[in-house]
């Protein structure tokens, strides 16, 4: 058998098994006793069309929360990772603080941090403390995700072989110059896929800010569902979230591929 016919055979088998699999799952679901009811309450096309403009508008708040939080997280997490990689006994207290921070905010459930800050901070009634629930939701997400993302950065920094730093230092570069120009650029490139993973997590967790009362997509769909006793608005919100993550995932794939091509490129 030639390689070509083997390849065609593999594609045929893949297509057939996919069709069979999804047909079976489809039959199982649509023949479930409760299916007509589920179909009416979750997959009502009329409800979908009616609710999606409002939810899409509310979803803009999710996008805003995500964009603002992400910008802070990328910078703060990198700073935290750099602090934790500082060498020498002088920096021991800073390293220890960094570890305590990461341990704490990775340990407490995100929804709890949001609740504590969102309800607690405004309750202080200090004139300079913002009252906006969205503001405190963003702060909570930044605190939690900075802890996660700093671990990703740190793994990247540690994956750069010490000989790269040695080469930079041997040329007379300072520790900081070596970190900035040699170690971090390589570290960040390597962790782009896991960074994206955390971005997607953050995108989804913007829905938790609705818990404080900010009307984002999930909150809006809750309001719609409560008004009509139909859950289709939840499906509409889910569709919007997925629609945002898929392009982001493809974009990252493209970044990784571009970097690999460039590194192996012969210029001119």
């Amino acid at each position: 058998m030639t390689a070509g016919s083997e390849g065609r055979r593999a594609v045929t088998v893949a297509i057939l098994s996919t069709i069979v699999f999804f047909t079976l799952v489809g039959i199982a679901i649509t023949h479930a006793p409760g299916w007509p009811e589920v179909r009416r309450t979750f997959f009502d096309w009329g409800e979908f069309k009616a609710s999606i403009p409002e939810i899409a508008r509310a979803f803009l708040l999710n996008v805003k929360i995500f964009a603002i939080a992400e910008a802070f997280i990328l910078v703060l997490a990198l700073a935290l990772a750099v602090i934790r990689s500082l060498p020498g006994p002088v920096f021991f207290p800073m390293r220890m603080l960094g570890i305590a921070y990461a341990d704490f905010f990775r340990g407490v459930p995100t929804i709890l941090v949001i609740a504590l800050l969102g309800f607690g901070a405004p309750a202080l009634q200090l004139s300079w403390v913002p009252l906006s629930t969205t503001f405190w939701g963003i702060v909570a997400l930044v605190l939690v995700y900075t802890a996660y993302v700093s671990e990703v950065y740190r793994a990247g920094i540690e994956s750069v072989h010490p000989s790269q730093d040695a080469a930079a230092r041997s040329l007379g570069l300072s520790h900081w110059q070596s970190l900035r120009k040699v170690v971090l650029p390589q570290a960040v490139r390597r962790v782009i896929p896991p960074l994206l993973n955390d971005f997607i997590g953050l995108q989804k967790d913007t829905a938790l800010v609705g818990f404080l009362g900010s009307v984002e997509a999930f909150k809006q769909s809750q309001i719609d569902a409560a008004a009509t006793f139909n859950y289709t608005p939840f499906v509409a919100a889910a569709v919007l979230f997925v629609a945002l993550t898929i392009p982001l995932a493809r974009f990252t794939d493209w970044l990784v591929l571009r970097d690999r091509r460039r590194r192996q490129a012969t210029g001119v």
């Binding site: 000989s163 790269q164 040695a166 080469a167 930079a168 040329l171 007379g172 570069l173 110059q177 120009k181």
Partner: peptide, 23 residues
Amino acid sequence: FQAYNLFPHMSVLRNVTLAPTLA
């Protein structure tokens, strides 16, 4: 070094000019 230790994310020219410009 035995293992060259060039900076893989920089062009040959940048590998050579990095230290003179920075240090």
